[in-house]
Amino acid sequence: MPESNVIALHGADGALAEERRIAVAIVAGIRKGHAQAEGDLVERYSRGLRVLLIRRIGDEERARDLLQESLFIAIEKLRSTDLENPERLAGYLRGIAIRVAMNASRKRKREPTSMDISEVAAVRDSGPRQFEQVSDKETAAAVRRLLASMPIQRDRDLLTRYYLHDQDKEEICKELRLSSLHFNRVLFRAKARFRKILEDEDQMHRSSDRPVR
């Protein structure tokens, strides 16, 4: 990786500093036997771990099982051993999840894991997901609205090539005579517009779900 990228990868950022502070507190709490800290760990890291497990396993249901197993292993370890770099808890958890996923791939039929940690057993899902009330059909409708709202054919072409045909960015830029920056800008704006459409859709669902007083 080029040096400039390495610098960017490790660049300072406030959210990361906050994460490290929280991670240290969670690790210390679990080591001291605080159930609340275990709950915090499950709440904070479940969703992200599940995303990367799904990415590796390709099966949402199975990923949920593996997430529980990963959290179980992590909490057991953190209860009994000191973590060398507690501020790197996220990396530690990722490592466990990857190993669990790899093992699961090796032996497809696994013994059921005995869970005696209430916080882990309570993990039914990875936490609230964005636009979870928006159906696939509504997502498709949102895509149509997005495409219809893009006045420049080249921009719509960009989305089609990138997301449907999986063309490389460089190839698209060359064929559509776009700069890399322009490409990023079109994608960024399209996503922002798509997010807004989905948010409106999601909001409509939430409003209609609200109980009548």
Binding site: A15, E19, G91, Q130, F131, D136, L159, Y163, F194
Partner: peptide, 20 residues
């Protein structure tokens, strides 16, 4: 693993890709 906003972005990109 910890950045909620980033997870939202991944969700959004997946939805956009799947929707298209």
């Amino acid at each position: 693993v910890w950045d909620q906003a980033l997870m939202d972005e991944v969700d959004l990109a997946q939805k956009l890709r799947a929707g298209i």
